[in-house]
Amino acid sequence: MSGLFDMPSYLEYSYFGLVGLHLREALIPVLAGLLVALPLAQLCVRVRWLYPPVLWVTTILYAIPSLAFFVVLIDYTGLSETTVMIPLAVYSLVVLVPAIVDGVRAVPQETLAAATAMGFGPVRRYLQVQLPIAAPAIIAGLRVACVSSISLVSVGMLIGNQGALGNMLDAGLKYDQPRLVWLSVGGTAVLATAVDAVLIGLRLLLTPWMPRGARTPAVKEATG
């Protein structure tokens, strides 16, 4: 079996080095996207009329091909990882902003009224009530953003060796090496599945308060 994961030297990384690079190039943008999306979404929740235009803008940005981004960005950030990651971060907004806005808006009115009535200020209410209750929706958004980001990293090969597993695919096709093609495609799929599984686990961990099927039946009123 020796040699299955051996990489040609022009790829500059070992197989697992490429996997690590791929992960980094895919997830850092989602994280950055989340950091932008959280305040942006809160703004959209508070200032209702802002939400539709913000949604349009994120959609239009999403429609811009990454190649166009690269052409513009190369002047500023060169042929670097950053040039690949900036468009990915921008793309993630199209999923994350509506996920957070809808999640936060879905918090029941009674819950919000109760929080206000108990003396929660707006910031505390957002952090301690709205965000935790919106967590499942936000994580659902993160799952889509992560998986799509993992598949999009490969386009980084267009700007010279910044596509991680995408570079391997490129090399496999160019030099007719099916082993590299399969390793690249399979690796990307496994990576996407693994990250998705981690996020599902995170959700289960963060939301013990969600009803889970009929495993824990509600206790019926006994005391009258």
Partner: peptide, 19 residues
Amino acid sequence: NTLRRSMGYVIQNAGLFQH
């Protein structure tokens, strides 16, 4: 908020924090 914390508030459907 000081005023509100000195007044308990109960509503229909309780408005509990589900989390």
